[in-house]
Design a protein around this nucleic acid. Structure first.
Lengths: 251, 251
DNA sequence: GTATAGCGCGATACGGTGTATTGAACAATA
DNA sequence: TATTGTTCAATACACCGTATCGCGCTATAC
């Protein structure tokens, strides 16, 4: 019947009968559940029972679990810089950095977010569209990115880095926590496994990595440093290549 | 009992009784299943029955489904440039490009790979360790990356981009295929949804994106272009900042 | 006020999942 | 030959997403 995406489909009227319910309430409950026990703990049964409702009642508000996940994703995007930024349009690097760091912070608040991050088309919900719109606006203000192809290419490149970096960071944090909170213990166990793997002389660089232990960078510093590399690269390379040239090369 | 990772745990001896079995056979069957029907179709029951075995028999070779997924990941890494590259150590950009494009090609052959890509610690299996080792070796040959901190930072930055870009590309390809293979139809439907979302004047950049349709870049060209941006940024920024400076800033 | 029509919602059911447990059949050893 | 120990398949359990169905309520029509 209705092939409209969730965000355009009207919500059923709230009925005070057993417990008032709404998409917002459902999404909030699901997010709280995922925050506490991970994405694997989000089931329609559990979300429902957190709201004193049976699992099937949710299907009046949400067509499937996938849709619920889409709504959860958009909810997180909604936490990223909802207010306007006065410096938008004048300081493109600052704007991009703020947006990316905002998404990273949201992902750290909601660790399950990374499991969904690049895994489904996230250009659907209003909040993720707003995020994309702001990213594009920031890129549009960069000198040298004059047409839409350049802006889109820059945005996709930055987005790829941000997604990958956030995923790596959260995954590593989770692993450390699961292996045992102690960082030293993790280093010793890693050295144990890696040490055995590198004992026979394969992987000389990994051996160097173990033998010359480098100081741990603060995760935010590491994230920003990589991001600045990407932004430098965009500022250096993209303006030097006319957009039409790429399009022609690609066709 | 054995807390060793799979790759160090001895395999049970092959018994010719019903059907010879081995980790390699199990992983191959699982990969074939995932290639054909997606990662969701990989269940211990289906993998087992593809090998004329019950589900529980697999537990003699693999401790859990997670371990099977780890083995599948490493299998894909094994397809990336298994042979030596004579230009390693002289042309760092070429080496990194070859490795990244190799991983991208493998991910396109095994689309389920992206669902696992950054989602678990992939520094475990021998093949992924070999991949990491080669990446580090390539970075080590870059001028200006003199100590391990710089090499690791560069590798992590490139890896973040590669992971994110591959994920985005495959996800987009899957969406296009699911929505209906026709690209024009997808554009029309996207314009429909996006058009309604941007009708009220929010999201001016998205409106521009729709109104000035840009030519589609070939995915490999787009991937390489973004990668070159990242490599440019690394070449520009990392050597200009002494490694100790970052470490101190971070501490 | 009462009968009826519609519908929201909960219970039930189905086919699937990962995996713990159990017991039987087989191989190796005493 | 008797016994022991291992390997594997069958069963079982808890849980999942969701299709179906029927009860009970609400709102309308007379």
């Amino acid at each position: 019947m209705t092939n409209l995406p969730v965000w355009e489909r009207p919500e059923p009227p709230a009925r005070p009968t057993p417990t008032p319910l709404s998409r917002e309430l459902i999404v909030r409950a699901a997010v709280a559940l995922a925050d506490r026990d991970g994405l694997g703990a989000v089931s329609l049964r559990k979300v429902g029972s957190a709201l004193d409702a049976g699992p099937m009642r949710l299907y009046g508000y949400v067509a499937s679990k996938e849709e619920l996940l889409d709504l959860m994703i958009d909810e997180v995007y909604g936490e990223v810089a909802p207010e306007e930024d006065p410096t938008d349009g004048v300081d493109w690097r600052g704007s991009v950095r703020r947006l990316s760091l905002g998404l990273r912070a949201a992902a750290r608040r909601h660790e399950w977010f990374v499991d969904l991050l690049g895994s489904r088309p996230h250009l659907n919900g209003p909040h993720s569209l707003a995020y994309l719109n702001r990213t594009l606006a920031a890129m549009d203000a960069a000198p040298g990115l004059d047409d839409m192809v350049a802006v889109l290419t820059a945005a996709r490149t930055v987005d790829a880095y941000v997604v990958g970096a956030i995923r790596s960071e959260i995954t590593e944090a989770r692993t450390v926590r699961a292996t045992g909170t102690d960082v030293e213990e993790w280093q010793r166990s890693a050295a144990g496994h890696l040490g055995r793997m590198t004992a026979d002389g394969r992987f000389p660089m990994l051996k160097r990595m173990i033998n010359e232990p480098s100081p741990e960078l603060d995760p935010e510093v590491a994230f920003t440093l990589g991001l600045d590399c990407v932004l430098d690269g965009i500022a250096v390379r993209l303006p030097t290549t006319p957009a039409l040239r790429w399009a022609l090369d690609g066709a």
